[in-house]
Every structure is written in structure tokens, then in C-alpha cells.
Computed example of a mutant assay.
Amino acid sequence: MAGRITWRRGWGVLTPGVLATALVLTGCGGGGDGVPPPRASEGADGGEWSAGPGSGGPTWNPSEDAGNGEGNGGSDAGHGGNGGSDTGNGGNGNGGNGGGRKKTELGWLPVGPQVPNTDTAINTPADAYDQLQDLRCADTRETVNRYGDGSKSWNLVSGLVYACLASKGDTALWAEAGRLYDSLGGPGFAQGDCRESAAYRTLNQAIGWVRQNPRGTVTFRPSRGGTTACRSGITEVDPGPEATLSPGDSFSVSGTWPDEITRATLRIGGSTVLELTREFSGCCHGAGAVFRLPESFAGAGQADLTLIYAGGTLTKPGVFRVEGTQQPSPVPPAPSPAPSASPSPTESSSPSESS
């Protein structure tokens, strides 16, 4: 509020504390002629006392730099806020560190790929991973509340749920995410499970950053296409390499592949290729499939299996031996060479011509 501070008579000796009480803001001059003003000096607030001719008393004159009042704090980037004061003239300052909020974007859960789920029920930590991988925080929280049993696998999913919700604005939930993270006791429990290992790395990175930047803001970036938590590959074929299969026999395959298997072939001895009948094929992490050999084929030997899906193939050599019932077609004999031509009698030289 604009105005001036005047000196009133009759206060006696004033201490600095009493002086603050004795000063009265007025909009016009008052009494006070003949009372010496306080010594002019720069105050802690930036300004000085002065007594103009004919004035009602000494007047406090704020300096030009006194406009830095309470303003918005500076950000971690070093940009200060705009100060303000009762004089109405705010100063622009270059603020210090610590006043603002850091922001970061962290990678979210990579694609599993998804677990096979033939009955469409979502009731395991692996199912919840797939649900949460799409950043469906609220849906996954309902899954945890319904099926979670307090195991470390469920606590890992639950910690990620709270981190997911906290990143969407409910920052108080970081504390619960941190508590669940601490209950895991490190990544050791997830060894051997590629999806849980990826989930732990995601939560570990988020909690670590938030604890170093308690006023910071985290957002999660959806996983890029092609990045998976688990490598694709054929894990097992049953029966194994010591077995011999005949026409019409079936065998099973387990492993991880990023999409539905559309075709499967066997190559025998590096040349003969058999198209297999697909009896069953699941997708995608820890998946299984069953294939059947043709009812009739020729050839025998160790077989290499190839699974074909949209965008790629998986091959495992020497899965087992096969023996066909058809005998290979006999190789026709090579044609005998044509007899060499002998000279005709007319081409022979007569004795008289040679003499």
C-alpha cells in the first residue's frame, strides 16, 4: 500500500521493537515539527529515512531494489520467480536451486510377451503384468485386491500399481509404492523369471529417482515396440532328440514367441521339408503348441524344426529322428552313351585311289 511513515511526538525513547509499533502509515503529513529524524541509513529492507522541507516528519523511502517480496520460488533449472511487494514494483530475480520441481520420464514395463490365457481369466501375477503393461493402473489395482495373496510376486505388481497411479497425479501413493518395494528385499526373488526381473528393474528405477527427488514429478513412457522382457525361442520339444517318430505321430513344443504360430515345418537330412499339421498353438510367453507329422512321407534322419509366425521364424535343430514309410523313388539309370559313328562304305578309300 502506498504511503509514508511519519514520526509522532510523545513516544519517548524508542527501541527498534517499539519503533516498529510506533510507525503509523498515513496518507498525509502530520505533526512532528522540530523533532529530529532518525539517522538516515540503508535498512535491512532496502531504503532510507529522509526529512523533506516542510514535511510533517521523516519519511521512509524504499529503494528500487526493495521490490523483491514474496514471489514464486526459483526452479531447479535456476530461473527465479517474479518478486512482489507492497510498493507494487516487483523485481525479476534469478532464483537459486531447490525451489522448483524436477521432472523425468522413465521407461515403463516392456512387453512380456503376453502369457497364454485360454480361459481369459486374469488372476495371476503374470496376467496382472500384461494388464499393467498397458498402463491400466486402476484395473490392475482391482486385480491385486481380488487375487493378491501378499507374496513377493503380488507385492511387486502392487508396488508398480501404486507407482503407476502416483505418476498420474496421486503423488502421495509413492510412499506405499516405496514400502512394497522395500518388502521385496532386492531382485533375488525374481531370478529366473524374465518378466518379474523386468518388473523389478522398472520399480527400482522409479523408487530410486523419487527418493532422490522427493518433490519431483515422474511420468512413464510406454515400452517401445519390439522391446520384450523375455527372449523368444523354442525351450523344449517332447519327445526329445533320442526319439524316433513315424508318419502320423504328434509332438509338443514349448517356449516363447511374440505372436501366434501360423505354420511349422520339419527338414530331414537338410533337404526334405515336411509341412506339419497344427493341432494346438498358444501364445506367447511360456506358450505351448502341438503338431502332427504327415500320414505319409519318404525319407529318414534327424529333423530340424521351424516355427513360423507373422514377422519371423524360430528354428531348433536336431529335435528328434523321423522315419518315413514311403521309400524314396528309385533313381533312374543314367542313359548309356550313343555308339560312335563308323565311316560308311562310300566314304572308304578304294585301293585304286590310294595307290
Rank of each mutant, 00 (worst) to 15 (best):
V319E: 04
A20M: 12
P58F: 12
G95C: 06
G282P: 01
P62M: 03
G73K: 09
V253S: 03
W7E: 13
T171P: 00
A22K: 04
G81K: 07
G10Y: 06
L180E: 09
G318P: 03
C283W: 05
T140N: 09
G248T: 08
R146S: 14
R201D: 15
T104P: 02
S55K: 10
A289N: 08
Q114W: 00
F189R: 09
T306W: 07
T202W: 01
G12W: 03
G255K: 07
G80M: 01
P38A: 04
I5K: 06
P335W: 01
A199E: 07
C164G: 08
D193Q: 09
P330W: 02
L132R: 09
G233V: 04
A128I: 04
N92E: 13
V157L: 11
A298S: 15
L135Q: 15
N155K: 15
D127F: 01
R321Y: 11
F220T: 05
A341V: 12
G150P: 06
C137G: 12
G208K: 05
N155A: 11
G269E: 12
T315E: 13
G43L: 09
A175I: 04
Q327W: 04
T59I: 12
S85Q: 07
D238I: 13
G78I: 11
T6A: 05
T120P: 00
G240T: 08
V273C: 00
V273M: 06
D119M: 06
Y309D: 01
R267T: 15
G226A: 01
R267N: 05
N97W: 12
P239G: 11
G311M: 03
H79P: 02
N213C: 00
R321W: 08
N123P: 01
T313I: 10
G96M: 06
S254F: 03
S336F: 03
S197F: 00
P294I: 09
S153G: 13
L106W: 03
E48L: 10
T228E: 11
P38C: 00
L160D: 02
V331N: 13
T26H: 10
I5H: 05
E275L: 11
D182I: 03
Q114L: 04
K103T: 15
R101C: 08
W257H: 14
